[in-house]
């Protein structure tokens, strides 16, 4: 008898990350295919904000509200989640493949000796087992991976799955948790506030060496207008024009926005490794032979400093 799907919510400073809603929505779809319940697990924050998760199909919401879990540390979280798993006995665990979700799911899978599919872009159930679709070889291959064993853990790539509302009973259960033996000590956190997080943004506008310097204002304006994030190629980061956290690609972030606009980026394979799963790709480059055009949905040949402000003006007209 199926014991249900457990979706792990992720909060930062008491606010759920977008991938939480994606994990719940996907968890609900999996629970429906398995004919079982969906339980949401919230760590380190309040009952109040947790109620909201009922809207995404959670039948039960477990809340472990203790100060020790407010900031994520691998050992405290793994201890607590492993305890909950041993009590709840879920057949499937879904988490986001955010920095935190990847870290936790990897350690948890080893603790539970359980199969894990990382960075999934699609999930389905076959004969009561999960099949996860995930990208490999820097996005050059999509592989279907069959999971075998219990529980089956899937960490889903942010921005790859739909958020769907469906009412769940959402009964809240407060847990008394013991974080157990821990060795990691949280010292401090520094967050740059303001702009949308690259991996969660619906629109990403990126600049490369073609930006010619650290003045990214033309693409920042376009990104702001679209509530998007600004990314960069490695060349732009190496030049010191942007911080390493803006880098998109194999040694940077993997993004899957609905719209990716590459400005002054040639389209190296290592760059594609970070954005090939984007919905629509637009390339703006003055070199008609630039490889980026071969993988773009729309390309414009021309000077980005002329084109980007014009595009921004045209979009303003729409709004």
């Amino acid at each position: 008898m199926s014991q249900g799907v457990l979706a792990i919510a992720e909060q930062s400073d008491g606010v759920f990350r977008k991938v939480t809603y994606e994990a719940l929505s996907e968890g609900k779809r999996i629970a429906d295919s398995l004919g079982c319940d969906l339980t949401a697990l919230v760590l380190g924050t309040s009952e109040n904000i947790s109620k909201e998760l009922a809207k995404y199909g959670a039948d039960k919401i477990l809340v472990a509200e203790t100060r020790a879990l407010y900031e994520y540390t691998t050992d405290a979280y793994t201890n607590v989640v492993a305890d909950i798993v041993s009590k709840e006995k879920p057949v499937v665990i879904i988490s986001g493949a955010s920095t935190q979700g990847r870290d936790l799911s990897a350690r948890l899978a080893a603790r539970l000796n359980a199969p894990l599919a990382m960075d999934c872009i699609a999930l389905r159930v076959e004969n009561d087992n999960l099949i996860a679709t995930r990208s490999m070889y820097g996005g050059k291959i999509l592989a279907d991976v069959a999971l075998d064993g219990k529980p089956q853990i899937a960490a889903i790539r942010p921005n790859s799955m739909n958020i769907t509302e469906s009412a769940g009973a959402g009964s809240i259960e407060k847990l008394d948790v013991d974080v157990g033996k821990t060795e990691l000590q949280f010292i401090e956190k520094k967050l740059d506030t303001g702009r949308v997080e690259l991996t969660e943004a619906d629109v990403v506008v990126s600049g490369g060496r073609g930006m010619g310097g650290s003045d990214f204002s033309v693409i920042e304006e376009l990104a702001d207008l679209l509530d998007g994030a600004v990314g960069a190629s490695r060349a732009a980061v190496d030049e010191g024009w942007r911080s390493a956290s803006d880098q998109v690609g194999q040694t940077g972030k993997v993004v899957s926005p609905n719209l990716y606009i590459a400005c002054g980026i040639s389209g190296a394979i290592q760059h594609f490794a970070g954005m090939s799963s984007s919905g629509i790709i637009v390339a703006i480059n003055k070199d008609p032979e630039a490889p980026v055009f071969s993988k773009a949905d729309y390309g414009i040949v021309g000077d980005l400093f002329e084109l980007v402000p014009l595009i921004t003006e045209e979009i303003k007209k729409l709004k």
């Binding site: 199969p115 990208s135 993988k295 390309g299 414009i300």
Partner: peptide, 28 residues
């Protein structure tokens, strides 16, 4: 506990096109 059961290439962006126009303004 995990096994690759199939592999494929990601869907190609077949309908990609270059936007033409008389001027930068028109292309934008």
């Amino acid at each position: 506990k995990t096994k690759i059961v199939s592999m494929k290439f990601p869907p190609e962006r077949k309908d990609g096109r270059i936007i033409e126009g008389e001027s930068a303004q028109a292309k934008a």
